[in-house]
Design a protein around this nucleic acid. Structure first.
Lengths: 192, 192
DNA sequence: CAATATAGTGAACTACGATTCCGTTTGTCA
DNA sequence: TGACAAACGGAATCGTAGTTCACTATATTG
C-alpha cells in the first residue's frame, strides 16, 4: 500500500537541494526570524518555488532539523560500532558529543528547534532523535560497565545537557563560551 | 544635574504595577509571543495605557527582567552575608542557585531574555547582572579557599550553566527535567 | 518533435500584532 | 470646587512577512 512516488524532475531536485542549502545559510545568519524571501533569493529561485517544495516555513525548518539529526544519529552509530573495549566507550561518546556540538554551532535552525519551543519542528525529527537516544544509551551501558560514568546517567540527561550547550551558542554573549560549557557538562557525567 | 522626576499620580502608579504583574503572568503563560493586548486586558487597562508606561513591548519585557535580576542579586548578597565559614560558601551558593532557578521556572519573560537572543532586553539589566556576578565571584573565592569548587571556576561559568538550565525549563519536553539539569550542573563545579 | 504533466515565478493578498492618536476622564492642588 | 495637567481608552493605522494563485516555462516521454 506504499505509494511509490515518481522521482522529481531533474530541475526540481536541483532546486530543492539549493533551497535547503540556502535556508541553512540564511537561518544560520539571521536566526529563525529570517525570511522566506531571503531564502528564495539566495537560492536563485522564486518564493513560489520554495512553497512548492515546503508548504510552510516551519516545514522547511523541520526538514533542516531532521537532516541534522539524521547526521547526528548516523555519526553516533558509526562511532559506536568502532568502540573496542568498554573502557573506550565514554571517550568515544565524548568525541561524538563534541563533534555534534561543533556542527550545531554553525546551524541556527537546529539550535532554534532545540531551545526555543518549536514543538512541531522538534517532533518532525522524532525518529532520528530516538535513534540517537538509543545509541547514546548503548554507549552509556558500556561506559557504566567500565565505571567511567555516573551510574545514574540517562540518555536524556545527555540530550538535555546538549540542549543547554546549544542555548549558550545562540546568546551572542562573548563571555559565554560553549566549548567551556560542554567541558563542564561532560565533567558532570564522570563518576565521583 | 539629575532630573528629579515628579512622583507618578496615584492611579498611574497603581496601573504601572498592575501592568507589570499582568505582563509577568501573560508572558509566563504564552512566552514572548504573548500580545500586549492581552497584557492590557488582564490588567484591566487599555493598550494605550500600557504604551504610556512602556514605550515598546521590549521595554516592558526589559523591566520585568531587570526586576528579576534585582531580586537575584539581592538574594545572592543576603545569602553571602550570612555565610559563616569558607566551608559553607559552596553550599550557600548552591542554595542561591536553586532558589533563583525555582523563581525563573515560573517566569518565561526572563527565560526568554536569558536564552533567545534578546540582546537589548538582556543589556537593560546590566547593572543587576554585574552585581550578581560580583557576588558570585565572592562566593567562589571563599569556596575555592575551602577546596569545595574546581579551582578554575569563574562566575561566568555559573551564569552560563544557569542559562542552560533555564533553556531546559522552556522546552516543554516532559522528559527534560530542569532540576536534574541543575543537579548535574552543580556537580560539574565540584573539584575532582 | 509534439504533447503534457510538472515545475517555476513573483506580484498581490492576508493576517496579525505592535504602535499611534486624539477625544475623554480623573487626580491634584490652590 | 474649579482649573488643568496627567493619565486613560481603544478604534484605527501601519508595517511586516507568510502564503496564494494565475500565468509562463520546461523536462520528460513516446
Amino acid at each position: 500500500m506504499i505509494e511509490t512516488e515518481r522521482p522529481l524532475r531533474a530541475d526540481a531536485r536541483r532546486n530543492r537541494d539549493r533551497i535547503l542549502e540556502s535556508a541553512r545559510e540564511v537561518f544560520g545568519e539571521n536566526g529563525a526570524e529570517a525570511q522566506i524571501d531571503d531564502v528564495a533569493r539566495r537560492a536563485g529561485v522564486g518564493v513560489g518555488t520554495v512553497y512548492r517544495h515546503f508548504p510552510t516555513k516551519e516545514a522547511l525548518m523541520s526538514e533542516l532539523v531532521r537532516r541534522q539529526f539524521r547526521l547526528f544519529a548516523d555519526r553516533a552509530r558509526e562511532a559506536y560500532e568502532d568502540v573496542g573495549a568498554d573502557d573506550d566507550a565514554f571517550a568515544a561518546l565524548d568525541g561524538v558529543m563534541r563533534h555534534n556540538a561543533e556542527t550545531t554551532a554553525g546551524d541556527a535552525a537546529v539550535r532554534y528547534a532545540m531551545t526555543s519551543g518549536g514543538h512541531h519542528i522538534w517532533d518532525q525529527a522524532r525518529v532520528e532523535q530516538q535513534e540517537l537516544l538509543n545509541t547514546t544509551e548503548m554507549f552509556l551501558a558500556r561506559a557504566r560497565r567500565a565505571g567511567k560514568v555516573r551510574p545514574d546517567t540517562q540518555a536524556t540527561d545527555i540530550a538535555m545537557l546538549m540542549c543547554g550547550v546549544c542555548s549558550t551558542m545562540g546568546t551572542g554573549r562573548p563571555e559565554f563560551d560553549w566549548r567551556r560549557h560542554l567541558d563542564l557538562a561532560i565533567e558532570a557525567l564522570r563518576p565521583r
